[in-house]
Design a protein around this nucleic acid. Structure first.
Lengths: 337, 337
DNA sequence: ACTTGGCACTCGGAAGTATGGAGTGCCAGT
DNA sequence: ACTGGCACTCCATACTTCCGAGTGCCAAGT
């Protein structure tokens, strides 16, 4: 259906359009990319490509612009992920290595990715559900108040204040703490409810109400924090692109946690980097943007996702390279901390 | 210099311009606000106001637009802070009361304020330096690793991992924990360095290296977190306003912690709400924006600031009302938690 | 000493009118 | 199957015109 030359033409169109932001015509193509044929031939090829829906001309007598379908083909078959330059790698390394806690890691990552790609970066915090309990701590902070601190193996720390029905002695607290930790050490967060089910029966009867209160807060915390936290950075980069009136919508979408969740959504197959182009996006306001997403994690355990959002007219190979590289580095950093 | 009628004219100009976003002419003024004089008189007044620099005409034969100086006069002498409607108050209350931890409080506050004012909201986390220690916790998480958790009376929780030079027994940890807490309970964060100065001498000699490590991390944490955390929301609201090309700059400024810090900067006098208009702003990219800032805190202790950023052409009375109200509610919420 | 109606003047913005050129589609020739 | 040539389309730009909102000023009125 599409011979090699037509594919080459499509690739050339995408590349030129991405770099110039102007519809590209047959003449420019033969000059810029030595295709070895004349502009008339190219025009014929372009006519075919247009008929198949890969490119589109804004008006008669204008050059061609890739369609979403055209970008899709380009990403799937015509481009290879571009590895980062040495300088960029070093930049990533130094930028990320100074991070001392999870917030810092995520914060730096998102800024780094935004800067590297000159687009909007989105990073999801490591999943709670897929991580496990490293430690539970109970701290009395006032007479009828306990602070519950939950530390996961991914370095995430959640804390909640518990109002206790009655006063607790240091001893009871110590006992409860010990119990909790033996029950839960290394326990996957999903299994916590089961693991603590019989706890109330194992404490001194008069401590049961307190235990129940603690457990209910603990379980609540797990449920509430189940929806993952997501941050973004680089919104300023949107301003330079000219979205046809859609800028406001894009910004609005970015501020909705739910939309961001969907945005990183299912990373389809298990390939390293997933790309969602234009109308392939679920959200209404993002129909003229593309998203490049990668999983990140420690070892072969996927913890969460990160990605980049930009106009469909985007440097896909470069962006994919940056996203992949950053995802890897973050995994390493998390593993080492 | 400026008689009452001229002030009334200025007020009318500001109000009209804010609501219509179009330069306002003498005719529109006499029609909209019953000033009791003819348009010719108004024109004379406007000429004076212009000469004094309170208003400005974009081009000959256009209406007048307030200058920064004009807005300043309006804010200082011509307007009163507009209290919120009952519905708005209730909205604030229900929206904020569901927050369970500091992150949630701040997160909800910033979104609420953005929605209420339809502008960009900025909220600073409660200051660490002005708060005090409620509890310090040491948790062993691995063989040579301790987690230090610092809980302040404002509900803020900081955690850091400590690499210890040698293994610590549960007992030593318990001892150290107890020591730390007796030393530091209720201690202002600024006084921490003094309070712990003699700690190494009070532990068992063989625990001294570990103690030193813990203390150094503790002090580090205090220093690092000294620069306050700031979040913003509502960037989408910027898109609806038309900044003369400056949108990108504004977005960039918003993403710089440092700039945000300066933005909330000195709340000049101790009045409830401070307004900084246009070129009064320190930052270059924000010369065409105004900022409305208020302190918030518990009782009469100021913890931090929050505010709103928008175009100089802004509904000052309404915005000031919203900022003041939200600041008060946040204080209440923090006091109650 | 203000205020007012009248009037000439200015100038930006909208709407209409050329014009140039980039790009196309098609066709006949190699 | 490719190429050069050619007529055609139509967007972008620049230029002109024109309308009207708004002004400043002045002379007359209170």
């Amino acid at each position: 259906m599409l011979d090699d030359r037509k594919l080459a033409v499509l690739r050339a169109i995408v590349e030129d359009y991405v770099s110039t932001n102007e519809p590209v015509g047959s003449k420019a193509l033969v000059e810029g990319h030595n295709l070895g044929v004349s502009s008339a031939t190219i025009r014929n090829d372009m006519a075919v490509l247009e008929e198949q829906g890969y490119i589109h001309q804004p008006h008669t007598s204008a050059g061609r612009v890739p369609t979403d379908k055209g970008y899709r083909l380009f990403v799937d078959r015509l481009s290879t992920i571009k590895p980062l330059s040495g300088a960029e790698r070093r930049a990533i390394e130094t930028f990320l290595s100074g991070a001392y806690d999870l917030d810092a890691v995520v914060g730096r990552t998102v800024r780094l990715l935004a800067q590297l790609t000159r687009q909007v970066a989105v990073v999801q915090y490591p999943s709670l559900t897929r991580s496990s309990v490293r430690h539970v701590e109970l701290v009395p902070v006032a007479d009828h108040r306990l602070l519950l601190v939950l530390i996961t193996n991914t370095g995430r720390v959640e804390q909640r204040v518990i109002e206790t029905p009655s006063h607790l002695s240091e001893e009871s607290i110590g006992h409860l703490r010990a119990l909790l930790n033996t029950c839960l050490d290394g326990c996957g967060l999903g299994e916590v409810p089961n693991a603590v089910a019989d706890l109330p029966d194992r404490v001194h009867p008069e401590d049961r109400p307190v235990t129940a209160a603690v457990l209910s807060v603990l379980l609540e915390t797990l449920v509430e924090k189940h929806d993952e936290k997501i941050v973004f950075a680089g919104a300023a980069n949107l301003a330079s692109v000219d979205f046809s009136q859609g800028l406001r919508e894009v910004l609005e979408a970015l501020e909705e946690q739910v939309v961001l969740m969907r945005l990183l959504g299912e990373t389809g197959d298990s390939s390293t980097v997933t790309v969602r182009i234009g109308t392939e996006n679920p959200d209404e306001g993002l129909q003229s943007t593309s998203v490049v997403v990668a999983d990140y994690g420690v070892g072969d355990m996927t913890l969460a996702r990160l990605g980049v959002l930009g106009p469909t007219r985007m440097d896909y190979p470069g962006t994919m390279g940056a996203v992949r590289a950053v995802a890897r580095y973050v995994g390493q950093i998390l593993a080492g901390s």
